[in-house]
Structure formats: structure tokens, C-alpha cells
Amino acid sequence: MPTFFSLCSLLTASFVILAGCGISHDKVSVNQYNEFGVRTAESKLWNEAIFRWNQVLNIDPRNAKAHNNLGVAYEALGKIDEAIESYKRASELDSSSKYYRYNYRKCRLHVERNKDGSTVESETNDESKE
């Protein structure tokens, strides 16, 4: 009987340890991928950085840092719609971060500025047609 109990406790302990190892391994991977992405982004290797941050999101889809960093990478490559989407997701996941809000606001400002320019142009065109 004591052998059965000790066997059960041993199994439970092994399970807990293995599960814990799994979680910590994922965390390490997420941080490693993220930091590697940041380093490549510093060297302007944006496509490599996007690949790394997508790997982070495959492991942890609710990682606000990866969403924010992806937004920066997309914006740098001129993919503004994707950038806005990523910044928005990052701000939703962690609304307390001033950096996510800053990036998101700046990107929207940039979009609005270009949109205003084209609106003025199209209005001018309409007037001249009339």
C-alpha cells in the first residue's frame, strides 16, 4: 500500500516537474525569439525580425510585446494596414504601456496626414472638373 502511494506521488511530482519545464521552456523561447527579433531590427533586418516575432506569436498569441514590435517592423516596410492592426492588438492586450500607445498614435497620425493630403487633392480635382 505504501508503495502504491509513493508511486502515485512520484508520478504526480514527475508530471508537475515536466509540465513546469515545458512552460519555462516556452517562456525562454518567447524571450529569446523576441530579443533576437529586436537585435535584427536594430540592424534593419526587418523581414528576419518579423519571422522571429511571428514565432513568438505562434507560442503565445497574446504577447503584447511581439504585436507591438511586429507593428514597428510592418511600418518600417511600409505595410501600414498590418502595422495599425498590430499596434491596435498590442494596445488592447496591454493598455497601460505608454510605448504601445505612442507607436500606435504616431502611426495613425502619419496615416491621417497622408489621407488629408489626398483628400485636399481630390477636392481640388473635383472643383477643377466643375
Binding site: A41, E42, G117, T124, N125
Partner: peptide, 19 residues
């Protein structure tokens, strides 16, 4: 924990460049 990076931002022409 924070890294500042500079990214290029395309600024459109204030006139209709196609016209």
C-alpha cells in the same frame, strides 16, 4: 527593456503628383 529605432516614413506630395 526598451529599444529606440528609427524607421523611414513615406510622406506624400502635397500636390497631386499624378496630375
Amino acid at each position: 527593456s526598451i529599444t529606440r529605432v528609427t524607421i523611414p516614413i513615406q510622406v506624400e506630395s502635397e500636390i497631386d503628383a499624378d496630375r
